[in-house]
């Protein structure tokens, strides 16, 4: 019985394993609209639609080109590997490329701060729902885009990400975008991440490429 319990506990722990000794590579998703069901459309507020069209026309608006952090969820959708560093009270996402930044998800049961300082990667708290890691993020500035295509958002942005490891090499990545400042209702999409066992991150400093 004792061993059975131990086995069961280990089994659950295994299910909540986000992968070590390797890196995750997003299956690149440039335009969230391509993943929205065909009978629906991105529920833009009128100004946000205009802003999206402007972003499409003016690629120089893309702050990623100036080595600023891509924001959430875009940073999880670009063709740049990242590593997940998993500890009991905190999960780190460590990103190769771009601005060489990291992101943290608090797993210790804390709440979001009441009035978070708006920033590029937000304030993230998480919990396990069975084998799915649920990450709730707020506190974003309004300068990042949701994707390469240029979907805008406001400081009201609230993102819920669900990471479900469906097998050793694949993670399902479901996202809900909740930003009534830019969209009339919450909307979402699904994507996936691939695991590369044994791979390591390399240093890739964005500014090296634009400052020479």
């Amino acid at each position: 019985m004792k061993y059975c319990l131990l086995f069961c506990v280990l089994g659950i722990m295994h299910a909540q394993d986000l992968g070590s000794d390797g890196v995750w590579l997003p299956n690149p998703l440039a335009d969230l609209a391509s993943k929205v069901p065909s009978n629906a459309a991105v529920p833009f507020q009128p100004w946000a639609k205009l802003k999206f069209q402007e972003n499409q026309a003016k690629r120089q608006n893309d702050l990623d080109l100036r080595c600023l952090p891509p924001g959430v969820p875009r940073i999880m959708l670009m063709a740049r590997p990242f590593e997940i560093v998993q500890t009991p009270n905190r999960i780190l996402f460590v990103y190769e490329g771009g601005a060489h930044v990291w992101r943290q998800v608090w797993m210790d049961g804390r709440a979001h701060p009441k009035d978070p300082n708006p920033n590029w990667l937000g304030h993230s708290i998480g919990h396990w729902d069975g084998g799915t890691l649920v990450v709730d993020s707020v506190g974003f500035n309004d300068r990042t885009w949701l994707d390469d295509a240029g979907h805008p958002h406001t400081e009201q942005l609230h993102v819920i990400e669900k990471f479900s490891r469906i097998d050793a090499l694949t993670m399902r990545y479901d996202v809900q975008i909740d930003d009534l400042g830019a969209y009339t209702q919450p909307w979402g999409f699904s994507s996936s991440l691939s695991f590369r066992p044994g791979a390591k991150l390399v240093e890739d400093i964005c500014l090296d490429k634009i400052s020479k």
Partner: peptide, 14 residues
């Protein structure tokens, strides 16, 4: 061992 830094450019080091 992962070092995470606040300043400079919010860097990490593994």
């Amino acid at each position: 061992v992962v070092f995470i830094f606040e300043g400079d450019n919010y860097l990490w080091r593994i």
